[in-house]
Simulated assay, not measured.
Amino acid sequence: MIPLGFIVLISVVDLASPNDVHLGPLLVVAPAITASFAGAWLTGLIGALAVAAQVVIGIFHGGLFTTNHETQIIALILVSTVIVLYCRVRERRGRELTRVRSVSETVQRVLLRPLPERLGPLRLAALYLPAEDEALLGGDLYAATRVPGATRVLIGDVRGKGLTAIEDAAQVLGAFREIAHHHIALPGLAAALDASFARHLAETAESPDEDDAVERFVTVLLTDLPDDPAEPVRIANCGHPPPLLLSQGKPVRTLEAGGSAPPIGLGTLPGAHYRQDAFDVHSGETLLLYTDGVTEARDGERAFYPLAERAARWGGVEPSGLVDRLRRDLLVHVGGRLKDDAAAVAIERA
């Protein structure tokens, strides 16, 4: 209706103006505006109506076959044609982008499978915010699987960005899903993940970018949550930010590990070893795992996102509601755009 309104308004004003005043060239506004929200066919129709209006103006406002009106009509036809061609190109690019996003979404569902809302006696919810525009995948990763008597959860962050980071994330996720069932203790699982990633790096070491392959590693947090609520939660931290424990009416507790372990990919360093720590997590408490893309997100004044301070308000909130609040609050803090990928997993015993 807006382009039609412009056509009618410009035509009426032009017809009511003196013969030496010509507003017909302004009719090009109608197809130009239409192109901003419609496709080629509707834009072409509006362009044709604008040309028809110019013809009517020519007939009743100085003569159709004057040089001025003929020039205006030809120019309006040419400009409208260019706008329609632009719409065709834009629609084709849009279809290509839709196909690419469809492939990306499929790859994401394969690599970074959505976590179920319920897994054993646990409620889970995950958050993933890629930093790249139009991207659905990045270097942050998470996964969860059932093992005898417990639920095993992984969250990690690959060093770097781009296709190399996605490749490394895919390797770690695939290795975790395969070997998580073969190790009872988390230190053994961490060592196995490190060995698997080392083989992956060895296979890529022959690539032209050999130096980058040497510097690739993944920070990982492994968590075992037993089905028996009386048993403690076991955590193996491999260079990753420690999780937070949220409880309604209580301060946020940071589950700091008793010792440090290197990230996956650096476990072959001299003296490196993996260990696990035990923490009591009671019913009604929420375990929040996250990547450094959350805590290192900065606002316009370069201040880091205060995750522990904000999370203190969300004690007692169910996991899905918690990650929704975290998403909104984090995006508000950074002004709508992250500089790094961010991921989080909220876990609560049902």
Rank of each mutant, 00 (worst) to 15 (best):
V103P: 00
L266E: 02
R113E: 15
L137H: 03
L288R: 12
I73P: 03
F6P: 02
R275A: 13
T254C: 05
A131K: 08
A35G: 13
T145C: 14
G63W: 10
A213F: 04
E296G: 00
V153M: 06
H282C: 06
E203Q: 14
F65Q: 02
I57S: 09
G138L: 02
E215V: 02
L322K: 07
L186W: 14
A312P: 02
E134G: 03
R216F: 01
T254Q: 13
G271N: 03
E96T: 12
P232C: 06
R152S: 04
D277A: 07
G267K: 05
L124V: 04
V28F: 11
Q171N: 08
V89D: 11
C87V: 01
G265M: 07
L45P: 00
L225M: 14
H182R: 14
L129A: 01
L326T: 06
T145D: 06
G293V: 10
T151I: 11
A303V: 12
V79Q: 01
D157W: 09
L9M: 13
D277V: 06
I74P: 00
V28D: 08
T34C: 12
Q54Y: 07
G162F: 07
P319K: 10
V21M: 07
R113Q: 14
A125N: 04
A35V: 04
V153G: 00
V89Q: 13
S247T: 14
F217G: 03
L127R: 11
R99S: 10
I184D: 15
L307M: 13
R253I: 05
L173N: 05
R93Y: 14
G58C: 03
Q276N: 01
S247W: 07
R123C: 05
I73S: 01
T98Y: 00
T66Y: 05
P241M: 04
T34K: 09
V100H: 01
I57M: 15
A190T: 12
A48L: 15
L112P: 02
P18R: 13
A205G: 01
V252H: 10
W41G: 01
E206K: 08
P31D: 04
L288F: 11
S320V: 10
V110E: 04
I264Q: 03
V107N: 00
S260K: 04
P263D: 05
L136W: 07
G336R: 11
G336C: 11
E210Y: 12
L222T: 07
T286C: 08
D340I: 06
S207T: 15
R313K: 09
R90M: 13
L193W: 06
S104M: 15
G258A: 11
Y142V: 03
V214M: 03
A16C: 12
R92P: 01
G265H: 08
A350G: 15
Q248P: 00
I264A: 07
H22C: 00
G249Y: 13
Y274S: 09
E215W: 09
Q72G: 12
E132F: 08
A30F: 06
F304M: 15
D280H: 14
S102F: 02
L76D: 03
G316H: 10
E301G: 01
V89E: 14
I179C: 05
V147T: 13
P262E: 01
G5I: 10
R327N: 08
T106V: 14
L245Q: 10
H282R: 15
I77Q: 02
L246S: 05
R328Q: 06
E318C: 00
E296W: 09
A344K: 12
L141S: 09
S260W: 12
V51E: 05
V89L: 09
T145M: 12
A126V: 04
N68Q: 05
